[in-house]
Amino acid sequence: MILLQTIDLSKQFGDVHACDRVNFTVNKGEFLSLVGSNGAGKTSLVNLISGHLAPDSGRILFEGTDVTFARIHERIRAGIARSFQIVNLFDVLTVFDNVALSIFSRERKIVKIAALADLDRDVRREALDVLSQFGLAAKSAVPAGGLAQGERKLLDVALAYALRPKLLFLDEPTSGVSTREKTQIMDTVSSVVRAGAVTAVIIEHDMDVVFRYSDRIVMMHEGKFLADGTPQEIRANKNVANILLGAPLSA
């Protein structure tokens, strides 16, 4: 069942086609990897779908509803959430408050002005539960700015996950961390996302990570889709190998 579909989605920056008539589908329940070299248009595509950028042309359908020009908060209410390549947290607030904010927002309690935030037992319970799933419960009272890079990456994902999205975009959740931490982060993220039955699209450069965790892989090159298939199919695709090795494409 198709959860998300883009139809001829395009975005141009000057002469550069970040996305060139992209037709992209995400099926419900899958763990999809979006790969490609730097500048291929992966993050631009996620920015267009999440509402960070407005497209020049094309449409975005989410569960059959046109969200092409929906505002960011409307897309989040619809069920689209994302994490960021460069960690985007509220560094002064505690780890707990970071996640609690997501839950307050999702529950539409964020506008409450005459109630103390830390007395909401339901939010406290759920925030701690989310932090436990991401292995961050022990750091709940620490300011987010005081976390190690790997933990910050996990918290960044946890913030998006706490919105209980139907579709979660993860923009390079393992960038800037050690190889050992990469596995830890991906094991955690993958198990939480699959347990929560959340559809996930991950942008990733590390092909070991991509092949290990993905149900489907889509490759982008110069704003266009180059390949789409299972890990086995992608592994056998010569064009993918050539792009990743910097060799010319075959005819």
Binding site: H73, L101, V111, A115
Partner: peptide
């Protein structure tokens, strides 16, 4: 004191610290 310790007050601090992320938590 109640305002700044309410969910609304926490949201203000979040907006102050990271407007982009606050928007992607669904805050207007």
């Amino acid at each position: 004191w109640v305002i700044v310790h309410s969910p609304f007050g926490k949201a203000l601090q979040a907006i102050r610290d990271n407007e982009t992320r606050a928007a992607f938590l669904g805050l207007r």
